[in-house]
Design a protein around this nucleic acid. Structure first.
Lengths: 156, 156
DNA sequence: GCCTATTTGACCTTAACTGACCAATGAACA
DNA sequence: TGTTCATTGGTCAGTTAAGGTCAAATAGGC
């Protein structure tokens, strides 16, 4: 194993592999001490490996009883969303965002309601900001939303 | 159950669920001793979970025969959406937005996926802006999204 | 040697929990 | 009729227990 990050990635992958529902909950400090590394190292691994583009969704909670939850999406639903995410890597106009959302809707990856929810936020009126910040925020928000969708249920 | 607060919340939810009229009366000290915690812990749970944004109303009375009464607003869906919009009248913190979304989810007005979609946009990271503009934008976007949900429903 | 990925540690934010002290209520009693 | 006092619940500051962020240092590959 070349480096620690790869080892931690492998460790987490195996945990997910062994889980019932492709979801695990870990304690950052616990994993860090298992690998004798700084806790922030765990964040680094999560940020570089367990990203939406690869089909992962990460949630966390601070404070007493805090945790980090990692969910892996099934391959079938991931591919198009990955493409969409890859496509949304720079400031976007409302029209471009609309194209992406329409595609996802037609492919059955999102519902009509979900598409309306997304487009409500893509609207130039709703975003309040002026150009060019508006297009940047739009891209940012769309990425955030697509990221959460990547691990949705099958019942879309 | 990771932490005590979640356990107490669950306990109270079940009590309310089992009640006739969505109202329960508890003794603070009694619940505290049941969970072997400080009485003020009960207040903490009430203040962080049973908030108006989530459709709960708490009254209490001190002295002999004192009590804490928790009432859950379980009106029509229209009423709950009205409640939600009423809470989105001014700049909102992420936590407040979270309360509203949690309520809508628990009441079945939105799906799990939709709640994640909304919360992705409520996230302080996603919004890019600094305070106080961030809280203003958050409110604006939440209103926009709730708005599309309302106009999209035939029975609202 | 340069560039990128990795690793670390100092400092920050949030959530949970506790205990000391405060405030209200009502019943016993002078 | 006050007055006292046990019985509740309320408040708040402080502590503990997580996870987050960021920049500097280091290591590895080309």
């Amino acid at each position: 194993m070349a480096n620690m990050s790869d080892a931690i990635e492998l460790f987490l992958h195996r945990l997910i592999e062994a889980s019932e529902d492709n979801t695990i909950e870990i304690q950052r400090g616990e994993v860090a001490s298992r690998f004798s590394c700084a806790p922030s190292q765990i964040n680094y691994v999560l940020q570089t490996r367990f990203v939406p583009e690869r089909g992962y969704y990460v949630e966390s909670r601070r404070g007493g009883g805090g945790y980090i939850r990692i969910t892996k999406a099934s391959d079938s639903q991931t591919e198009l969303l990955r493409l969409a995410l890859a496509h949304c890597n720079q400031p976007m106009e409302q029209r471009q965002a609309g194209h992406v959302v329409t595609m996802l809707l037609k492919e059955g990856l999102i519902t009509e309601r979900e598409s309306r929810l997304i487009m409500a936020v893509m609207d130039r009126q709703a975003l309040l900001l002026e150009l060019p910040w508006r297009d940047e925020l739009r891209c940012h928000l769309l990425r955030a939303m697509l990221g959460t969708l990547i691990t949705g249920e099958e019942d879309v």
